[in-house]
Write a protein that binds this DNA or RNA. Structure first.
Length: 482
RNA sequence: GUCCCCGUCGUCUAGCCAGGCCAAGGACAUCAGGUUUUCAUCCUGAAGACAGGGGUUCAAAUCCCCUCGGGGACACCA
């Protein structure tokens, strides 16, 4: 019997959810859903100076929007509550006491300034900047002296003199010599747990089986492995994901454009497109079909197919994916998604006809934010293009088409799609014209432009009166030319 | 600086672990055609890469070594 898969996404609430963090969350989630396991959200808020509740809320809301629901964690609870590190201090204390009892941690009285000075010296001597172990073997007298000085102290873990090997699903076996690791802080002088200690305690307590995270954590892993071994705990399986870089190959940052998930939401991206795009960063589907909905992604996902190299976030591709997902939606659904992106200028009447208008414009939509300018172009700002007016004036027979069209529109009793189609046909029969010769002049008359969405479908939501007004305006514009 | 990771079209990648099926496949973007009353969608096609150098082998994108390039870590941040 195989053990149930348990994974976690453990952000620190020091900022909005970044595309890198979202990708990490997504890979954990996809893997877990594929395996039928439990996915846990844990908030790593032990850095009291930088953590803020507002960020926790924003991260949760971004995950929510992406649809990455968690089985255990804030709001939903679970058997391993609490899921905020800041509320688990007693537990860290308990494990720390155990380490003290074993004599594998020792108090370090060095101040931040001393440590910084030490690192400076090491750098100057071209040595690796690393903790030297100056408090490693302090005598009782020395300790008392420091205590008497009123110095604070942190606890460091005395690492064993043997290399730590990370068996990583993505990277393979990676070994770190102990002199590269150095004794590290377990409990800070303010009593709070250091990251490398807290994660191990949490991951163990919560029964995490797979740790999937960014490869900036790879070199932390030896410290965590030492702790697992020390406590006799079963370490999880590791999978370190290569970084996501900006367009110039540097670490992704603000100056590369949108880096927060929230910004994509505001720009009119669909969550399913974001999920699809994120999934393709460092992973590829075995069947080579890249456009996939969430269920297909879950079905196809495996950690074995994550690749080792860093990737850059390709904005063009996300746009393309967004267009694919958007156009796959029925018009009524698109209307709902459009809710926050409707233009101020949307008239009450057009609002009622929104599904029809959306149907008309959907092929031109890539982002939800594309709708408003298109709507305004075709439905609000009617200002005939001079080039189109000129074309109409100079094209043989074009004006005649418009006059006949006007006559038929005026005579129309109702204005359904069928009505409009038969009206156009009647005009065509009368003129003995068809194809471009017929449609193009009509288009210019009603839209003021030489190109646009399907003309006969456009007339319906526009309505009889608006069509007539426009034809009138265009005819006037032609006359003004002379 | 030290250690670690990575290096296939402009970009995301398949192929690499188990060498021949690869004169390297797909997708985005680009360009050219086509369908469509037009734009878009869609379809077809073009261009475009194994970082460099050494090995090993009958055979290397795939294995080994070196160089170069990029990234990460080296915190009482996570």
């Amino acid at each position: 019997m195989t053990k149930e898969v348990r994974t976690r996404f453990a952000p620190s609430p020091t900022g909005d959810l970044h595309v890198g963090g979202a990708r990490t969350a997504l890979f954990n989630w996809l893997f877990t859903r594929n395996q039928g396991g439990d996915y846990i959200l844990r908030i790593e808020d032990t850095d009291f100076n930088r953590s803020a509740d507002q960020y926790t809320e924003q991260i949760k809301s971004a995950l929510d929007w992406l649809g990455l629901n968690w089985d255990e964690g804030p709001d939903v609870g679970g058997p391993h509550e609490p899921y905020h590190q800041s509320q688990r201090l007693d537990r860290y204390k308990e494990v720390a006491d155990e380490l003290m009892k074993r004599g594998v941690v020792y108090p370090c009285y060095c101040t931040a300034e001393e440590l910084e000075a030490e690192r400076e010296r090491q750098r100057a001597r071209r040595e690796p900047p690393r903790y030297s172990g100056r408090c490693r073997n302090l005598s009782e007298a020395e300790k008392e002296k420091f205590e008497a000085e009123g110095r604070d102290y942190a606890y460091r873990y005395r690492i064993p003199e043997k290399p730590a090997t990370v068996k990583d699903i993505a990277k393979g076996e990676v070994s770190f010599p102990p002199d590269q690791v150095g004794d590290f802080i377990v409990i800070k002088s303010n009593g709070s747990p250091a990251y490398n200690f807290a994660v191990v305690v949490d991951d163990h307590d919560m029964g995490i089986t797979h740790v999937v995270r960014g490869d900036d954590h790879l070199s932390n892993t030896p410290r965590q492995i030492y702790l697992y071994e020390e406590m006799g705990w079963q370490p999880p399986k590791w999978c370190h994901l290569a970084m996501i870089l900006g367009s110039d190959g540097e670490r992704l940052s603000k100056r590369h454009g949108a880096t927060d998930v929230e910004e994509y939401r505001e720009k009119g991206f669909l969550p399913e497109a974001m999920v699809n795009a994120l999934a393709l960063l460092g992973w590829s589907p075995p069947d080579g079909v890249e456009v996939k909905d969430v269920d297909e992604l879950i079905e196809a996902f495996s950690l074995e197919r994550v690749n080792k190299s860093a990737s850059r976030f390709d904005f063009d591709k996300v746009r393309y994916l967004n267009g694919q997902h958007l156009r796959a939606l029925p018009a009524t659904e698109i209307c709902e998604r459009l809710e926050d992106f409707l233009p101020e200028s949307l008239t009450k009447n057009d609002r009622e006809n929104l599904p029809e208008i959306v149907e008309l414009l959907r092929e031109q939509l890539e982002l939800l934010t594309d709708f408003a300018p298109l709507y305004e172009t075709y439905f609000v700002d009617f200002s005939p293009e001079p080039s189109a007016v000129k074309w109409l004036a100079e094209q043989d027979g074009a004006l005649e088409v418009v006059t006949v069209l006007k006559k038929h529109v005026e005579a129309a009793q109702s204005f359904s799609l069928a009505d409009v189609e038969s009206l156009i046909k009647a005009a065509g029969d009368e003129l003995e014209q068809s194809g471009a010769d017929l449609y193009k002049p009509m288009r210019v008359a009603v839209t003021g432009q030489l190109e646009g969405p399907e003309f006969h479908r456009l007339m319906v939501p526009l309505g009889r009166q608006r069509c007539l007004d426009r034809i009138e305006t265009v005819l006037q514009a032609v006359e003004d030319l002379n």
